[in-house]
Nucleic acid binder design. Sequence first.
RNA 1: GGCCCCAUCGUCUAGAGGCCUAGGACACCACCCUCUCAAGGUGGAGACACGGGUUCGAACCCCGUUGGGGCUGCCA
Length: 463
Amino acid sequence: MSSVRVRMAPSPTGYFHVGSARTALFNWLFTRQQEGKFVLRIEDTDLARNRADAAEGIERALRWLGLDWDEGPYFQSERGKLYEAAIERLLAKGRLYACDCTAAQVAERNQAAGRPPGYDGYCRQRNLEPAPGRLLRFRTPRSGHTSWVDIVRGEVVYENSSIEDFAVRKSTGQPLFILANVVDDAEMAITHVIRGEDHVPNTPKHILLWEALEYGAEPSFAHLPLLVNGARKKLSKRRDKVALEDYRDEGYLPEAMVNYLALLGWSPGGDREVLSLEQLIAEFRLDQVKSAPAFFDEQKLASFNAEYLRSFSTAEFLARAREWLDSRWAPIAPLVQERARTLGEVYSLVDFLFLPEVRTDPADWAKVRRQHPAFIALLEAASANYEECEWAPEAIREATQAAGAAVGVSALAKAQAPIRLAITGRTVGPPLFESLHLLGRERALARLKAAREKARQEDTGSA
RNA sequence: GGCCCCAUCGUCUAGAGGCCUAGGACACCACCCUCUCAAGGUGGAGACACGGGUUCGAACCCCGUUGGGGCUGCCA
């Protein structure tokens, strides 16, 4: 058992971001590989409303991915005493000062002085007594520098003078993220802080606070590359599909999601891409994680998903699809398993079996009618043959072939198109003869007839 | 603006000075297979941002340029 202790510290925003999922995964892989402890901590120091719900969402997402945790969830909203004690210590050491500037005042002063944004240190020497209505700021050293050796990006150095006097407690008395984060990392004996690159600028503050609180050896830091969209901007709720639940609801598999996410910023090396959770644990290397942002490509995710779907036995496939479809479609499952990229897609592949009426795609209809002058004749011939033949895939195939030949369409590929359109409303779908078989003779004949009539009406109307 | 980070095919990446006329995967194109679509097979197009160094030798090391991103909140 190693002493490695890692934490996942999401804020309860109401949904679980795919970027958080990737961060959680890398944290988890590292922990499991190091045989350490994985701690779940909800960072709800701010507007902690809906806390129970949000935490549930986070837990549900983690469970869905198959990432278990050893401790927690801890809630920062319940640990106020710890933060208050830390603040008292900092205050006693003169590392904090009270400030009553409003954001507007600071901005105004900066603008007037032609200074860039950021706190200007106005209250630094005013010696205001801490009081309600006054926030507390950390007195950042004005010289020297703060640095760390990041596990994924190497040494990062900040001039202390470039770090503003950041706030650690609100004027309402509530602790701020940076303070709670540091206190908890120390309190929970976290050894490795693995988080998104957007936290890099927080790290020198983290270290400065850590030192000021005399917590001893700092944890190691690893800042993971961001997940970006097609415009190479950080994935955001506003523009992008980032909620893990959305992917789950569309029929993405957790194993495909995990596998895909693991490859964003990391690679096992060589040509391998499909890896089980066990393999990931064994081969993952935090220090091999790349530092360049990665595009979250749903297309590639989908291809992983399709690959996992195909790898299942029919029974497993059916079990996985249960949320999306009832058991009536079981007979056709083998025919769609290799055609669906997501479970959510399955229904549109088999809906013609359940819908009372065919839903005809207008574009497909027009295309087939254009390409098949003998459309009506072919459907008639097929209907006639279908009335007679044995109702089994192979016999239906022969009947179709014969019907085509009778109207001068000898190629089966050509002959099946109008029938497929009549039966399913589309030009693509699962194998036709099995589909007809599953549909049943009566319904098949009825659809053939309906398609003929529709075509006749069309011809009459345009004549 | 300031601070910090990043840079191999469109995308995810392999590559840790010679194995690279740069490999794989997704996407794309063509062909094969085939009752459509998939799946599968074969082939194709497609990248080391640029400029200087260092070195016998650079995609790999250093510097600069350019480009992109993150942060810049009494959010996390």
